[in-house]
Design a protein around this nucleic acid. Structure first.
Lengths: 179, 179
DNA sequence: ATCGTTAATTAATCTAGATGAATGCATCAC
DNA sequence: GTGATGCATTCATCTAGATTAATTAACGAT
């Protein structure tokens, strides 16, 4: 089942919108929590810490769903910013629609599959952050998201990896000289 | 709906077993992948990295489900070890049962809820690992799992936080002198 | 063209936390 | 008792990556 069809299926209020690069769909402190399906373009979610530094949680290219699950699940105010890294077509839908009781079997299956996949990705991310040095995390990133480096600036890759742009630059230099 | 009842509901083959402290339920490289519901006791999942160091992914006290979701979802061989930190009563069930099409609406709702909650927890974990210093991660750990420090040795808390036991010891000393 | 802005690189210095080693203290087996 | 084992602590040293700052290049707007 195609993800977009599934979303339109389960949320009759889902609406499609087009946003310009740079548009912020959700900011820290918001209370009206939605989830976003990326039909076209590229979104990201990130926090800004107490020192004003950005930390990117995930990138969401075409076909991905992006949302602040923690705030949805634990009813906290939104902590993640979500914005567009490219002009994007986005389907906005309600956080609660996953919990509808009237879903088709197919929709349930799709939903479970999506959640599972995301869990698997996050598991890997935690393990990498805990156990692998920055260079390995970068290599894994390149392997897993080969198309992204052409679409986003390097300093964003750095804040996704949990290091500074300077550190990433040094790593890249090292990789170029000793391949 | 109570989680245990839900599991027995969806997997007729689910079986309950009792394990001694130290028993390993699953090890790296295993292909027969199960999920485990902790009825009583305490389990953990962890990896052992290339240098032989342990990194604990999650603790699972009573009421939690523990599994290697990445290996389940992407059909990889198991990478996470799962073992008992206390004598435990565990319900072993099949990874695929979440995808059954014959689930009751109630079971579907419960399932979605469990997955969402876990996603929220992992989101927080990633953000903390990326943006917060070790002392903040420790403080958050104490707040979130207040009962665990009485049940597990400190060096395990350290490997959960992503630091060495020595570093945790230093942090605790600092917290004791300047509270 | 020229000014401003944003990105990437390089280098000098600093620091949180790792590493390695030693010590003290329980607990358990015998 | 004594020895062995595991856990926490302390200290001295080391290092990956942070911080600060300067340089250069690329791009857009006027």
């Amino acid at each position: 089942m195609e993800t977009l069809q599934y979303i339109l299926d389960i949320d009759p209020n889902a609406r499609e919108k087009v946003f310009k690069k740079g548009h912020v769909l959700q900011r820290e402190g918001d209370i009206n929590v939605s989830a976003f399906y990326v039909k076209k373009g590229l979104l990201r979610s990130y926090i800004i810490d107490s020192k004003g530094k950005e930390h990117i949680f995930i990138f969401a290219p075409e076909g991905w769903i992006i949302a602040d699950v923690e705030s949805i699940e634990f009813n906290k105010p939104v902590e993640l910013f979500i914005d567009c890294l490219e002009d994007s077509e986005v389907v906005i839908f309600d956080k609660d629609c996953f919990f509808q009781t009237s879903l088709s079997k197919e929709a349930v299956h799709k939903n479970t599959q999506l959640l599972y996949k995301r869990l698997g990705v996050l598991q890997r991310r935690v393990l990498m952050l805990m156990s692998a040095p920055a260079i390995d995390r970068y290599t894994y990133f390149l392997k897993t998201y080969p198309e992204l480096p052409n679409r986003i600036p390097q300093h964003m890759i750095a804040t996704y990896l949990g290091i500074t742009p300077q550190a990433l630059s040094t790593i890249r230099k090292k990789m170029a000289t000793v391949p």
